[in-house]
Amino acid sequence: MSGLSFARIAAVMVKEFTQLRRDRITYAMILVMPLMQLLLFGYAINTDPRHMPAAVLSHDHGRLANAVVATLERTTYVDVKHLPGSEAEMDRLMRRGEITLALTIPPDFSERVLKGDRAQILAEVDATDPTAAGGVAAAVATLPSNAFRAELRGPAAKPVSPAPFEVVVHRLYNPEGITSYNIVPGLLAIILSMTLVMMTAMAVTREVERGTMESLLSTPATAFEVMIGKLLPYIAVGLVQTVIVLALARLLFSVPMAQTLAGWIALTVGIVLFITGNLALGYLISTVVRSQLQAMQISMFYMMPSLFLSGFMFPFAGLPGWARVLGEIIPITHFLRIIRGSLLKGQVLADMGTDLLALGGFLVVVAVLTVARSRTTLD
């Protein structure tokens, strides 16, 4: 047995660096993954979300009512982005998830404040996400003590107890702030993405490695027909996973379910689009990679932004602007709105239109790219 040879060690090192350079996907993962972690953890993650969207329906256009709205915005917890003309319009905004806070100021607000007659305003908070609801509720609770410091003069400006008006807070959809009502439905999106994308990517890549994919392409079946035939069984697998997760969510965590047939139809459409889009993405990954290891690496790489930029772990509206733009591209973002909206808010197809179109658009784009890549790779 010869002694330790630094020349042989150096030769093996050169060989490994050469192999690493040839394996571009793994090399990219080594460089890009730490950078993405740094950006996501440093900039996108926010445990104290601010600038949540709000709507104000004010029947009193006096100076004191305007002061309440201005003081609310100065807290930075909410941004008043909607001024609905009716309660029905504001309810629709809340049900669709376009606002987190709905503030209603009655017509006699200013008059009752000046008379010391215990005025009230109504603050309705979307409590489907308890983290976001907590900050917004805390912000509106400070209004009675801060709103009129610069507006009231004379005897009315003297400190009084109780406060000049009261904020009545109603937490909608999840009044008890139960975290599992928000997390468990979201887990369905994560479970489906993690399993279906990786399962499809690795299964198709395995067939390419073994040469069975070339045998399929030697048949009269087109690339599109091969893709459809391969995805249909996995769609059934995804539907079984969905049924199991929803059943356990109800039995173990008492998560509310859709209450109407229209709600279940809307949810089913969203589930089918989401499952099919994930499977198509897994198939697309298989046309890019050369091994099952690379397929797994890219699948895991896809899951990181999906976890942090979709609204699963942190309120989506509290993310920075650039993170929200990226999040809108991720299908999990739209499916989270669909599943939570259906189960907790009673949404139907009309309420989910934008998110269903986003999932459908994602599916079409990925399917076209997959077919194009399949023809290029396999010709």
Rank of each mutant, 00 (worst) to 15 (best):
I99S: 02
I45D: 06
A358R: 05
G186M: 04
P220K: 11
Y77I: 09
L57T: 00
M36H: 05
S180T: 11
L188S: 05
Y27K: 06
I330H: 07
R8L: 15
L57K: 00
M1Y: 14
M213G: 06
A133E: 00
K230P: 09
V366Q: 09
T131E: 09
P107V: 04
R324L: 08
V272A: 07
I99M: 00
D60R: 01
T276W: 10
V348N: 08
K345W: 05
L267N: 01
K158F: 14
R92V: 00
Q292G: 15
L216N: 07
L326C: 14
M194C: 10
T219S: 15
Q241W: 07
Y43H: 12
A102Y: 00
P155K: 13
F109N: 04
V168K: 11
N46D: 15
L246T: 02
M202G: 03
D60P: 07
V113L: 07
S291P: 07
L196W: 04
M313S: 12
L251H: 07
A266W: 03
P331Y: 09
E151H: 08
I99H: 00
L344N: 04
A372H: 10
V364F: 12
G62A: 08
Q347V: 08
K115R: 15
V364S: 08
G211L: 14
R210P: 12
G177A: 10
D60M: 05
L267D: 02
F109E: 02
L261M: 14
V169T: 14
F312Y: 14
F301R: 01
E98S: 08
A262V: 02
T18E: 15
Q241D: 10
A163Q: 11
P107R: 06
F335P: 06
A358G: 07
L279P: 07
D355K: 02
D126P: 02
S291M: 05
M303F: 14
A133P: 01
S291E: 11
L273V: 14
A7Y: 13
A119F: 03
R21L: 13
M90G: 01
T212M: 13
S374W: 12
V56L: 01
R24A: 11
A132N: 05
R206H: 11
H334C: 06
H51I: 01
V113R: 04
A372N: 10
